[in-house]
Amino acid sequence: MTVEELRARHVELLRDRRVADRLGPPDPDGPREDRYHTWTQVGAEPLPTRLTRLAVVRARPAGYRSAHLRALQATLDACQPEVLHLADAAGWSVRTPVLAGVFPTGTLDGISVPVPGRGVLVLVNTGLLDLSAAVLKIMTGVLPAYGTPPLLTPDQASYALAEAVNAYLYGNGAVSARPLPELSGQRLALVGLMLRRATQFVIAHELAHVITGHLVTARRVTDPDTPVGALDAWAVGWPREHEADRVAATIMLRTLDDLAPRLVEAIEPCLVGALLLVPFLHEVTDRLADEQGRPVPFSTTHPPPVRRIQALVEHLAGRTRTPRALDLAADVATWLEDQLAGVREWFRLVDEVAV
């Protein structure tokens, strides 16, 4: 089985679940994307308009957009080869064909789908990629540590984050928050680095299941509450999920091997923050999903996010090379926690509109 054959299986799965018929080039005559063109526009509409946008996502999620799925798949295609190279550098040569494919699984964990006699298809949630990118943009746009003056006020950032989480929880993987303006300079570099490494960590975690042979004895579980209805995944047990996190972290730390000490000191905190970003988001969105009565697909197949965070932090703390390697990750976790009250308030207001 070649990777191209796995790619065909991926498109077949997208088609079978009525997500997309193809991942070909976008239609140049398709509708133009509604987006924020300047940072002053973010959350600047009258309150009723902002609440209506949140309510519409809940009531009428849009259809899957082939052009957007293609763009997300291009991100995965760009990230996967480096992960395979890093795994080889860490002493784990991957002989099994693997392809990371974008798919609306509804979970912030990747899903490994063995294709007997062919390889492994790793499904990465569309919502995971959209939410990670939006949160990083908002965080770097509002916190002065990443550039002055800030691009967003705290009130703008609160609404933008509520919009991103609302789209994640209610958009069925088809809706992303209204795109934010482009970044530049230090902010662009930081978001690009962290988003790439966070995405690669998700791929590396699933690759770790292949490397360690976890999938050989995995059991199939079916969750009926994914964005595309009932979907199968392979459960390996909580101890092996922790092991996959450790293997993935070891693989990703190899990105520092060829860097000069001064670059390691600058980049390692960004790398560690990126490795912990998805578990941080998982913990926050799980709490909000529970409060909103929203299902969390495959929630029992992995340890609770807070346990994964604790175990991963302990693993990283013994392997990092700079004294302040965990500082950025701590800042991300603190910032997300501080934003919860604002997101809850927006959700309360939109709940009133929806009644």
Rank of each mutant, 00 (worst) to 15 (best):
V42I: 02
A198I: 05
T322M: 10
V102F: 05
R196T: 10
L271W: 01
V11S: 06
R7G: 07
I138Y: 13
L183S: 08
V284K: 06
L349V: 03
I211K: 08
P305H: 03
R118K: 13
S132I: 04
T222L: 12
T40K: 04
P26Q: 01
Q186I: 02
D225E: 13
T40D: 09
P323T: 07
V210R: 10
A266P: 01
G43W: 00
E12F: 12
A162H: 00
E337V: 13
P304E: 14
V296P: 02
A233T: 14
W238S: 11
W234L: 05
V3Q: 14
H302I: 12
L86E: 10
L23T: 12
V278I: 15
V228R: 02
L183C: 02
M139W: 11
A233C: 13
L253R: 01
L253W: 06
F201I: 01
R324D: 05
L84E: 11
T148H: 06
R7A: 14
A90G: 12
L281M: 04
V278S: 02
E243R: 11
G318L: 14
V115D: 15
Q200E: 15
H282T: 14
D223L: 06
D245N: 06
L288G: 05
R197K: 03
E268S: 06
G229D: 07
A248M: 03
L326R: 08
E265D: 15
E314M: 09
L180V: 11
